[in-house]
Structure formats: structure tokens, C-alpha cells
Amino acid sequence: MSAESRTVAREAWEETLGDLKAQGFAYLDLLTAIDRGDQIEVVAHVVEPVSAGQIRVSTRVPAVDPRLATATQLFPAAAWHEREAAEMFGLVFDGHPDPRPLLRRASPGRPPLRTATVLAARVAVPWPGAADPESAGKGARRRQLPPGVPVDWLDETST
């Protein structure tokens, strides 16, 4: 089922969700984030349980100041979603009662789901796509690199 979408300013986030809850959209289905480059989009999906109507609300916060009011006072279920979105995208949910990372230990590295974050763990794993059957026995014509990985990235660690 396709859901109606609403985009609101960061300042209107809590109020919008509160209004929707008052209108019967009392079930928080999902809250997550998307890296849009210089902005982080936060998306919440609320459901009206009787009609199963759905509304998707989104807002954008600057990547350099990724703060947003928590929705936990309205939807207690937002607590885990916000903790996960916070650790994965570096978001800060103001007023969250328990802002510990949900899935990972607190780490000083970049948030893993920001697109600028290079997945360093992949350096330790050989890329299965590096083999080149066409030039087997002839010496590889060119080194294959995983898609999306900076060209000189593996060189620092290999050989």
C-alpha cells in the first residue's frame, strides 16, 4: 500500500507527529534516516490501526548539525529506532531518554551509514570479484576493484 508523504521543517517535526497521533495515527511503524549529502533526511512512518492508513513524514537536518527533537514522548517505540538512526547516521535526538548506541559499541569512527564512510572492514576481506577468468593464466590485464571503492584505497593495505 502506498503511503501519503509529508515533508516538514525540522522545527515542525514533533508537532506534526503529535498532530498525526491525535488524528489516530497512533502506531509508529518505522523511523529511519537517509544520507542526502549535505543533509540527513529522517523519515517516520505512522499507521492508523483501524483503517491501516499510513502516512510517511520526513524532514531534513544539516549534516553538520544533525539534531532533531525526539519522538519518544509521543511514541515510546521511537526509542530504539532513534538510537539506531543516531549511531548509523550520526544524528542527535534532543530529549531522548536513553541515547546509548543500540547495535554497536560507542566508537569514535564515522557513522557507518553515512555515504562518505569507507567500510574499512572490507580491507580485511578479499574481494571475491577480483578474480578474472578471462585472463586466467595470462596475467591480469588490469586490477579489478570493488565498485564504489576509491581507486587507491586497497593499495595501502594489500601486498
Partner: peptide, 21 residues
């Protein structure tokens, strides 16, 4: 055909293809 395309496109690197010419 052991072309390796799926191996290279797989986001989780979970496909292994071994072949010889």
C-alpha cells in the same frame, strides 16, 4: 559462463565463483 558479474555486483560479497579457462 563464470563471467563474475554477479560476484562483483553483490553488495555483501557473498558469491564465490571459481573457474578455469
Amino acid at each position: 559462463t563464470s563471467c563474475m558479474i554477479c560476484v562483483r555486483e553483490c553488495p555483501t560479497w557473498c558469491i564465490t565463483v571459481e573457474s578455469h579457462a
